[in-house]
Amino acid sequence: MNILRKKSAANLPFSETAIELFIRLCGISSIIFVFGIFFFVFREGAGFLFNGLDLGQFLTSVEWQPTSLNNKRYGAFALIVGTFSVTILAMCIAVPFGLGAAIFVSEFCSPKLRETFKIIIELLAAIPSVVWGFIGLTLMNQLIIAVFNAPIGLTMLNGSIMLALMSVPIIVSIAEDALKAVPDSYREAAEALGATRWQVVYRVLLPAAKNGLLAAVLLGAARSIGETMAVLMATGHSVNIPSGPLSWIRTLTATIAAELGEVARGDEHYQVLFIIGILLFTITFVVNLIADLVIKGIRQDS
């Protein structure tokens, strides 16, 4: 077999071999990039991670004082809580809206309206995150102050709404694809049994498309966890364990973005920021792993 292949490869014109090599490189490169990123992030943070950093303090302390002269503290607990709380609240907003919009677009609206909607939703996905941050900083800030009578509008709620607006397009487009992938014969069969359109949706389509819908939600969540600029601008960027939606918070990503430019390369603070990077890497890895396992579990069920 091997000999045969070699022989045929030798007979191939040079351009064919070159293209094959190029495509192979493209395929391998994605793996190389992921490992490369992990390697360099890890290398920058590893020195302090294994030698000097109190990992217990890093994960449980709320004191983040990297620039203090005589009392340096690297406690990332508040940042972790900040990232998770803003993401969870964002998902609480984005999932019902996103799935609802996907159901509407795929099942209830006319074909003409559907095209318009899809264009608008794609437009929404194309807005840069700094623009969302700007909207949060100005418009949503005023709105939250006015509605909740809060002293300041740059809060977890503000950041969550921005993140929700950014994840909704992803959730809608993937969830809509998942619903469209359900064969029409299911709809027809259910309708012939006298089901109303809403009954068709929640008794047949949602169970049939649950895999894709879950993927939509998890990808939306992944977008929220990784988002930096909008949360940096909209959440108040203040180290704090939130007591409610109107508390200000700081996230892991925003911390790296805000502080990395001001540290000396190679010192402790610099390395801690990379350790936060490793932590983010781990979190997204775990989320993706859970998503894979859940989806695999569902596949085996059906």
Partner: peptide, 23 residues
């Protein structure tokens, strides 16, 4: 209505039959 190709809704046997009465 019985379709040419059997359309088993993605539900259990029980739920398939109970579908219309439930609706």
């Amino acid at each position: 209505m019985v379709q040419p190709l059997p359309v088993g809704l993605p539900l259990s046997i029980y739920d398939n039959v109970a579908f219309a009465p439930r609706t």
